[in-house]
Amino acid sequence: MRNRRLVEIWVGVFVAMGAAALFGLAIQVSNVQVFDARGGYELELRFENIGGLRTRAPVTVGGVRVGRVADVELDSSTYEAKVTVRIDERYEFPEDTSASIYTSGLLGEQYIALDPGGLDFYLRDGDEITLTQSALVLERMIGQFLYQMGNDDD
């Protein structure tokens, strides 16, 4: 090659750009360091109805992400939805914490919001949150609304 030095410099620039882009994708686009599948601890939540909640949906406290939904199952004895969430190890919550399923925006993703209680005992890995409020399912709400309207008419 005619200008070896130049070629080497350019290849160096190219590789650096590629590495920087990969790094940028990892750090800026995804959230690589937090909530990796192994870190943190797991909690179990039981809901009557989870609506459209999926695995990987965020778990928030006061709007701050503290974990993710790791698994969704049906408890075949009680016919309840059993949701396993993985919480970042930096956070601890009292035992009387309650959980609700909300929707971000009108048609957005569903997520779990935790509402910490005031007890001095904290939830540990594998513990269960019993105070839960199911997802609001639009059709059911409309149905209830119509039913109530019918009752009011009487």
Binding site: A26, S30, R65
Partner: peptide
């Protein structure tokens, strides 16, 4: 823009699979 993106994009599932 960035916050929702970071919440939704999983490193292993999305970035790594893309790579």
């Amino acid at each position: 823009f960035w916050g929702q993106m970071q919440d939704a994009v999983e490193f292993r599932e999305d970035i790594l699979n893309g790579v």
